[in-house]
Design a protein around this nucleic acid. Structure first.
Lengths: 135, 135
DNA sequence: TGCTTATATGCTCATATTTGCATATAAGCT
DNA sequence: AGCTTATATGCAAATATGAGCATATAAGCA
């Protein structure tokens, strides 16, 4: 079982806090590659964060083939207050910039599903134009 | 400066979380020995926790001779939400038991000031009777 | 001055955590 | 079957942390 202190410890790391905040802030389940692109972090770092967040009971994953969609675990009742707090406490930089980057990246979705993998920032604009999405 | 993640990391330890919760839950500034007695922890552990909590900007101390009285640092605006969350999140054991033990211990105060030092649990009841405090 | 008491701190060891890289897994596609 | 892609994981080195104990500081008081 995870003690409250252990859960807070899981939040007590810049990378994990950014990931958890992004997942909490987004109203959608997020694909790993979307998180990677929004946070501009190495894929393995995000993946490891997600494992820890899952073990801490903070997020859950829906798997769809090799793709994984992460969302807050609100079945755990105590998490409701926790995510509310995280959202409030993490207002401001750099967390809000992450959300902005995510929103941009989410425009590449089709039928609200992620259809591209890792997209380096340089190519993001190109891809968006190609898709006819407003930048 | 303390990042939000660093502050959460400071909370991410059972001992520190108990200390911070006790200070947040109490409506008074707490003397170190009162915290030690309520939590039944070694004095050096509590002292070290308090240093860390102070460095994290979570608590402040008023010193009165050798005695130190700790209280939440609410001057830091973000802490208001944080303490509110901690109180809500830490409802239940063992945190509420700590508060009960503290309330008992606070009955030894005179004019709302701590007047005794470390009191091992066995002697607490004896002292209370001697003082004519209702147990 | 010297004793007691409240609190803080230095030190050491065991253990945990972080970071980065390379690689594994496993699904979809040709 | 073989290639590509999305995601996860194992490992090793560097670093950080927590527990415990002894001791320091510094104030009040005999």
């Amino acid at each position: 079982m995870n003690s409250k202190a252990d859960i807070l410890k899981t939040l007590g790391d810049q990378t994990r806090l950014r990931v958890v905040h992004l997942i909490a802030a987004s109203r959608k389940s997020l694909c790993v590659c979307e998180i990677v692109d929004a946070l501009k972090l190495p894929q393995y770092q995000v993946s490891k964060c997600l494992v820890m967040l899952r073990r801490a009971g903070l997020v859950e994953v829906d798997r769809n083939g090799t793709w994984g969609y992460y969302h807050p675990n609100l079945a755990e009742r105590a998490n409701v207050a926790l995510f509310k707090f995280v959202m409030e406490y993490c207002a401001g930089e750099p967390f809000d910039l992450d959300v902005i980057a995510l929103e941009k990246r989410l425009k590449l979705r089709e039928k609200d599903k992620c259809v591209v993998g890792f997209v380096p920032e340089k190519e993001l604009l190109k891809l968006m134009r190609k898709k006819g999405v407003d930048v």
